[in-house]
Nucleic acid binder design. Structure first.
Length: 477
DNA sequence: TGAAATGTTGGGGCG
DNA sequence: ACGCCCCAACATTTC
């Protein structure tokens, strides 16, 4: 049998061995495989990974390298530009082919298109596969051939499709090249924080493919059936917490689908959970079709929206000092763990864009830097949805009442007391609006408003009225 | 995957 | 017995 020339597998945000079509196809050729990760954050600007994402990426790459080593291989790490790194690596190893799994956000899409052309121009075979989505964005269309802009018909249409294929197994061995090319030590990429702020992250997360499957097993076994009732409760562990694993491709949506949707009728909870996977899919399809929405409202009338500028209010929101306990709890959970429960994300987002009238872009930028699951498609959809300027958006007059939302979804106050300990001694009926508590109750709980805990930045009725008035100015007739 | 204002209904206290 | 009022509970509409 003649010696085949090596094939390069370019890992990006598909940091797994199972259900990895590019890796599987490379291995199946029987040729030596050169796995590579190329660090090129500048190519993703202005959406280069934020601090929290970089922390996750470091650990995910370390785990991927380990599991490749267990299969007789390695992970080569190089620095960008990606095109040059791949051409160099092909020359050094004698590789005549490069393959990868597709990404669909605008910056990466353009970059990959150029890389593919450059490789082919140099006589190198280049191909890509789908690992990140259930369906390719260009295959899900309305009857008129347009992209869906409303979730429910979009997801109904997806469910009518041929179900996504069963996941591909991990390769048992990954054939090594005759000699290994040089690799940059992972630590030299500078992904870990210089000052040690990541203790809470280490407690909360296990990045990597094994951690992803552990999360999925826990959720599918203990929580999926009840998901419809528990998913809105930030005080419970009722959600899957798969978002960062999905973002970095440590697990793929096909694997999630086939784990929870085994044959037979789906429980209510599983159907609801799959709809959340559907929202992820919807976000990625939308960004593919509307790439400008990362920075522009999908609804053009919102370009004239009278957003405020208020640095101090923005800082108070970021630091969890708004005076609304449910908002502050969420922002502090985010800062400490790199994650926030989705119900609370909706509450804090509504508060920023409606009560504070600050641009959704400011909220998106903060989430981008602080979330371990920061994902351009999901972040864009979520913020435009909250601001009312996006696809299937909440109507502009939908203003969450942060007091009622807190009491409704954190009924025992455990979530607020955990993240806002300075008011933990307040009784339940005053926990979500401390400024309305009688002076004696505040004294008893050792809360001094304006000193130990802030006054509300704006009172709810006034904030609500101001938001409605602002939205009225751009309302179309 | 809203909240608040407004409208409707019906039980019960009371003269 | 009856009308009246109050108000909780629920429904509808409006933002």
């Amino acid at each position: 049998m003649p010696t085949l020339s090596p094939i390069i597998v370019w890992f990006r945000r598909d940091l797994r061995l199972a259900d990895n079509p590019a890796l599987r196809e490379a291995v199946d050729r029987g040729a030596p495989v050169v796995p590579v990760y190329i660090h090129a954050p500048e190519e993703e600007a202005p959406w280069s990974p934020g601090g929290a994402s970089q922390w996750w990426l470091h650990h995910a790459l370390a785990r991927l390298a380990e599991s490749l080593e267990q299969r007789g291989s390695r992970l080569i790490v190089r620095r960008g530009p990606s095109e040059k790194a791949l051409l160099d690596l092909a020359r050094e190893t004698g590789a005549t082919a490069v393959c990868w799994n597709r990404l669909y956000d605008p910056g990466t899409l353009e970059r990959d298109k150029a890389v593919k052309l450059a490789l082919r121009a140099s006589g190198i075979e280049a191909f890509s596969r789908n690992a990140a989505l259930l369906f390719e964005p260009w295959t899900i269309q309305t009857g008129t051939g347009d992209p869906y802009k409303v979730f429910t018909p979009f997801w109904r249409r997806c469910l009518q499709e041929t179900p996504p294929p069963h996941p591909i197994a991990k390769p048992h061995r990954v054939p090594a090249p005759a000699a290994w090319p040089e690799s940059v030590p992972l630590g030299e990429l500078g992904l870990l924080p210089a000052i040690k702020w990541d203790a809470g992250f280490c407690d909360a997360w296990t990045p990597g493919e094994d951690g992803a499957h552990a999360s999925l097993r826990r959720f599918a076994g203990e929580h999926a059936a009840a998901y419809g009732n528990t998913r809105n409760r930030p005080d419970l562990a009722g959600t899957s917490r798969l978002s960062p694993h999905l973002h970095f491709g440590e697990i793929g949506p096909r694997q999630v689908w086939h784990t929870v949707a085994r044959d037979g009728p789906l429980s209510e909870g599983v159907r609801t959970f799959l709809a959340e996977i559907g929202w992820r899919e919807f976000a990625h399809h939308l960004l593919f079709h509307y790439p400008r929405t990362t920075h522009e409202p999908l609804r053009p009338e919102f370009s004239a929206f009278p957003w405020r500028t208020a640095e101090r209010d923005l800082a108070a929101w970021q630091q969890g000092r708004t005076g609304y306990p449910i908002v502050d709890a969420g922002m502090r959970e985010l800062w400490a763990t790199g994650w926030m429960h989705n119900r609370v994300r909706m509450i804090v987002a509504s508060f920023l864009v409606k009560h504070l009238l600050l641009p959704w872009n400011d909220g998106a930028a903060w989430f981008w830097d602080t979330l371990v699951d920061a994902d351009l498609a999901a972040n864009t959809l979520g913020w435009q949805w909250s601001a009312g300027c996006g696809a299937d958006a909440a109507p502009y007059f939908r203003v969450f009442n942060p007091i009622l939302q807190g009491a409704k979804f954190d009924p025992k106050g455990e979530y607020v007391r955990r993240w806002v300990p300075e008011i933990a001694a307040l009784p339940g009926r005053h926990l979500f609006a401390p400024w309305e508590a009688p002076a004696g109750v505040l004294d008893e709980a050792r809360v001094r408003l304006g000193t130990t805990y802030p006054h509300p930045l704006v009172e709810h009725p006034e904030g609500r009225a101001r938001a409605l008035a602002a939205f009225e100015t751009i309302r179309k007739n």
